[in-house]
Design a protein around this nucleic acid. Sequence first.
DNA 1: TTCAATAGTTCTGTTTTTGCGAATTAAAGA
DNA 2: TCTTTAATTCGCAAAAACAGAACTATTGAA
Lengths: 129, 129
Amino acid sequence: MRELFHPKIEQISLASLLYALGDPVRLEIVRRLAEQGEQPCSSLCCGVPKSTLSHHFKVLREAGVVFSRKEGTQRLNSLRKAELDGRFPGLMDGLLAVIDPAPPRIGATIDLLGGQAGRGREKRSPPHC
Amino acid sequence: MRELFHPKIEQISLASLLYALGDPVRLEIVRRLAEQGEQPCSSLCCGVPKSTLSHHFKVLREAGVVFSRKEGTQRLNSLRKAELDGRFPGLMDGLLAVIDPAPPRIGATIDLLGGQAGRGREKRSPPHC
DNA sequence: TTCAATAGTTCTGTTTTTGCGAATTAAAGA
DNA sequence: TCTTTAATTCGCAAAAACAGAACTATTGAA
C-alpha cells in the first residue's frame, strides 16, 4: 500500500470537483464522511464491490475531496472540508445542506446505491483507497 | 427538430445535477446562461465541435439544468434557475458564486475549454439542442 | 415553388471510462 | 510462518464521450 497522491487544493478545478461529486455512491461517501468524520473504506462497502469502491475513493481523492492516511492495515479517509471551504467558499456547506440522506435503516449497513445517475471521467492517474 | 424531453424538476437527483455540471464546457455554458440569460447553442460554439456541444446541451437538459425552446431555426436555452432553487435551495447561487469566469477576451468569441477535468454518464435517452 | 443558408441533430467509428470479479500486495497477529 | 483483514491492481465487457460526416428543419430569398 504505497503512499497516495493528493492534489494541492489550489490545483483542483470546480469542474473536477463537481465531477467527483456527480455520482450517487461518491455523494453518499461524502455525506457520511461529513456526518461521521474519518472513516475507513471498509465502513462504506455495503452494496458496492470493493474494487468499485476503491475506484470511487480514488476519484474523490484525486479531485481533492478526501484525504487518505494509512493506519495499520486500513486507510482512513476524511473530507478536506476546511481546504475546500477556502478554495470554494460556501460550496460544500450548500451542497451538504441539500444532500438528502440515504434512507436510514436502523442499525444496519446502508446500501450505497439508490441514486439515479452520474458517472464521469478524470484526466489524472495515480491509484487509491 | 422535434420537441425535447425535459425532466420534471422533482425527478432530478443531486448526483445527476452535479454530474451534469462536472464538465468544464458545461460549466461554462451554465455560467454564461446565468450571466447573459437565454442563449442559442450557436452563441456558445467556440472551440467545441457542434456535435459535441449538442451532446453537452443534451446532458444539461436531461439533468434538468437547462430548458430549451424552439425559436425559428434555432433553439433558445435558459437556466431552470427558479426550479433548481426550489429543489436544491442555495445550491446554484453557491455554485455560481465560485465559478471563476473564463478569462474574458474583449469582444471575442470565448474558448469554452480550459478547465482540466470532468466527464460523465447518464442513464436517460432522448436527444437535444 | 425551389434553392440556398443556418442551426442543430443523428450516425458512426475510435477512444476512454466504468464496474466488477479475480488475483495481488501490505500490514497485523496468532 | 501462516492467516486474516484491508485495499489495490489486472483484465475484460459494457457504456459513454468526442468529433467528423451526413442529415433534418426552418427561414428567407429568387
